[in-house]
Simulated scan of single mutants.
Amino acid sequence: MTRRMKEPAYLAEQLQHRFDSHIKPINDYVDEISTPDLWVPYVAPIHGGIDARVLSVQVVLLQGGDARKSWRRVLRRSPNIANDLTVISTYHPGAQALWHKDLAERIRRVTHQADAYQQLAAALA
């Protein structure tokens, strides 16, 4: 999905539907916490929005630096929001986030991402 966002037609479709009923509450919140100094990315409709299984069991999967920055902003605004949540942080799902010239670092990143997905699977079980 991340590579498809580079396709103009696919990106336009996702942006056009970013306020569909299943994703509107989330992207309304994104608009609420965004400022001119801090870009917070919209959640693409393909992720399922309020109908997504991950959200229904109260797991937050932070994939990449932008997601972590946005989450820190949410926590500053609502410090207790994470009290009952499982929060899992890992690298962006794109291959570029895992690449590094040092093979050992690449292996560490891939392992970290795999471990995060295993934690996610356990939380959803």
Results as ranks from 00 to 15, higher is better:
108 R>E: 11
36 P>G: 05
31 D>A: 03
92 H>S: 02
48 G>D: 02
10 Y>E: 10
14 Q>A: 08
45 P>V: 11
124 L>N: 04
116 A>C: 06
78 S>E: 15
74 V>C: 02
26 I>A: 02
103 L>S: 11
53 R>D: 08
87 V>P: 01
73 R>S: 07
90 T>S: 09
30 V>K: 00
109 R>C: 07
125 A>C: 04
32 E>L: 11
17 H>M: 11
4 R>H: 10
64 G>W: 01
107 I>G: 00
102 D>M: 03
24 K>V: 06
47 H>T: 14
108 R>M: 08
38 L>I: 05
76 R>L: 14
16 Q>E: 13
38 L>C: 03
47 H>K: 08
65 G>M: 08
48 G>P: 05
1 M>F: 09
106 R>N: 09
76 R>I: 12
98 L>M: 15
82 A>R: 01
31 D>M: 06
85 L>S: 00
123 A>H: 04
92 H>I: 08
37 D>A: 06
101 K>T: 12
50 I>E: 05
107 I>S: 09
34 S>P: 01
66 D>A: 14
102 D>E: 12
35 T>I: 05
38 L>W: 00
10 Y>V: 09
109 R>A: 04
92 H>N: 03
69 K>L: 08
7 E>S: 02
19 F>P: 00
97 A>N: 04
34 S>M: 01
72 R>C: 05
118 Q>A: 15
73 R>Q: 12
81 I>L: 10
98 L>N: 05
85 L>N: 03
78 S>I: 11
41 P>T: 00
19 F>W: 12
96 Q>R: 13
49 G>D: 06
93 P>M: 04
117 Y>K: 01
7 E>T: 11
61 L>E: 02
73 R>K: 14
85 L>P: 01
25 P>F: 15
14 Q>L: 04
124 L>I: 06
57 V>I: 11
3 R>T: 09
38 L>N: 04
108 R>A: 15
121 A>N: 06
71 W>F: 07
114 A>E: 09
9 A>N: 06
24 K>W: 05
21 S>L: 10
85 L>C: 06
98 L>C: 06
88 I>N: 07
72 R>A: 08
29 Y>L: 07
